[in-house]
Amino acid sequence: MSDDEQTPRTAGGTADGKTAGSAAGKTAATGGPSAGPRPEEIRFFGTTWVDHSGHYALRRAGLAAGALAAAVAACFVLRFAFQGLQIANTGGLVNGLVIVMFAVCSAIACRKTWEGFQRRPDDPAREDSLRSLKAIGFIGSLLAYAARCLTEAPGEKLHRAEYEAALARYEKRRGSRTGNPAARRKPKRGK
């Protein structure tokens, strides 16, 4: 076996366990676990958001285009559903309520999705209760995702702030420990 076959691969890393440009992805030459905090993965990007490697910009552009295409396709599906209501001759009130319901749910879903990229939810139980509302307004979520992909990986700013804070805490803890206390020399006492 060659050295490359014997060395275990780490998530998002190369054969020697290092990630290009990532301070947290570095491991010992023995392939052991990395020291310090590891960046959290973002869906479709993994940990490439840390150093913008692995065709990061191309992924962002592709995901923005894909989210917009999915939103357009969803609008066509909703249009066919609305035409079905018109064919059923349900009346103007029901048609108006359906339009208002999808518009309001899409606006709320867009806002909640956008806020989710900027900060963690204060009350996870409340977010769970809004899940069905966000499912109805999925077009708003798709539009928020596409708009966020134009500037960064969705959630990158939040993850970067948390990751940098974790690195700072780790370096502070690591700096306060100055080695093995048992190995220190005791000062000689004057006679």
Score class of each variant (00 low, 15 high):
Gly155Val: 00
Arg119Leu: 04
Tyr163Trp: 09
Phe76His: 14
Asp123Gly: 02
Leu167Arg: 10
Leu58Phe: 14
Asn95Ser: 08
Arg174Trp: 03
Asp123Asn: 15
Ala35Ile: 06
Ala24Gly: 14
Ala161Glu: 11
Asn180Pro: 11
Phe102Met: 11
Ala107Cys: 09
Thr48Gln: 06
Asp4Pro: 00
Asp51Gln: 13
Ser2Ile: 05
Ala144Gln: 02
Ser53Gly: 01
Lys134Asn: 11
Trp114Leu: 13
Leu68Trp: 12
Ala23Met: 11
Thr47Cys: 05
His55Cys: 10
Glu41Arg: 11
Gly36Asn: 06
Leu63Gln: 14
Ala88Met: 05
Thr30Gln: 12
Leu97Ser: 05
Ala81Pro: 00
Leu158Ala: 10
Leu97Pro: 00
Tyr163His: 14
Trp49Met: 06
Arg131Leu: 10
Glu171Met: 03
Glu115Phe: 07
Ala61Met: 13
Ala74Trp: 12
Gly13Ser: 15
Val50Ala: 06
Gly12Ala: 05
Lys134Tyr: 01
Ser129His: 08
Gly116Ser: 12
Leu158Val: 02
Gly17Phe: 01
Arg148Thr: 13
Ala64His: 11
Gly46Val: 03
Ser129Cys: 07
Gln83Ala: 15
Gly46Ser: 04
Phe44Ser: 11
Ala29Asn: 06
Gly17Pro: 00
Val50His: 05
Phe117Leu: 03
Gly96Thr: 04
Gly155Asp: 02
Ala103Met: 04
His159Glu: 09
Gly21His: 06
Arg79Glu: 11
Phe76Gly: 12
Glu162Arg: 08
Arg169Phe: 01
Cys149Tyr: 06
Gly137Pro: 01
Pro33Gln: 14
Ala35Pro: 05
Leu150Ser: 14
Ala135Gly: 06
Ala74Val: 01
Ser129Lys: 14
Asp122Trp: 10
Ala69Thr: 08
Ala29Thr: 10
Gln6Ser: 14
Ala183Val: 04
Gly25Ile: 03
Ala161Ile: 01
Gly91Ser: 02
Asp16Ile: 02
Pro187His: 08
Ala144Tyr: 02
Asn95Pro: 00
Thr14Val: 10
Arg189His: 08
Asn95Cys: 13
Ser106Thr: 01
Ala146Val: 08
Ala165Asn: 09
Leu68Asp: 04
Ala69Val: 04
Gly17Asp: 00
Ala182Met: 08
Leu97Arg: 02
Leu63Val: 09
Phe45Asp: 05
Ala183Asn: 09
Leu58Glu: 15
Asp4Tyr: 08
Thr27Ile: 07
Ala168Cys: 04
Arg173His: 12
Pro124Tyr: 02
Pro121Leu: 02
Lys112Trp: 10
Gln6Met: 15
Tyr56Ile: 05
Ala70Thr: 10
Glu152Phe: 08
Thr14Leu: 14
Asp123Pro: 02
Ile42Trp: 05
Arg173Cys: 11
Ala103Pro: 00
Ala65Val: 15
Gly92Tyr: 10
Lys172Ala: 15
Cys75Arg: 12
Glu40Ser: 08
Gly13Asp: 11
Gly25Thr: 04
Gly31Trp: 10
Trp114Thr: 07
Ser53Thr: 14
Thr151Ala: 11
Met101Gln: 03
Ala147Cys: 10
Ala20Phe: 14
Arg160Lys: 03
Gly62Phe: 13
Pro33Asn: 14
Val104Phe: 07
Arg79Val: 07
Gly140Arg: 01
Gly66Trp: 12
Pro124Cys: 08
Gly116Lys: 09
Arg174Ala: 12
Phe102Ala: 07
Thr14Asp: 15
Gly21Met: 09
Ala103Gly: 07
Tyr170Ala: 03
Val50Met: 06
Ala107His: 03
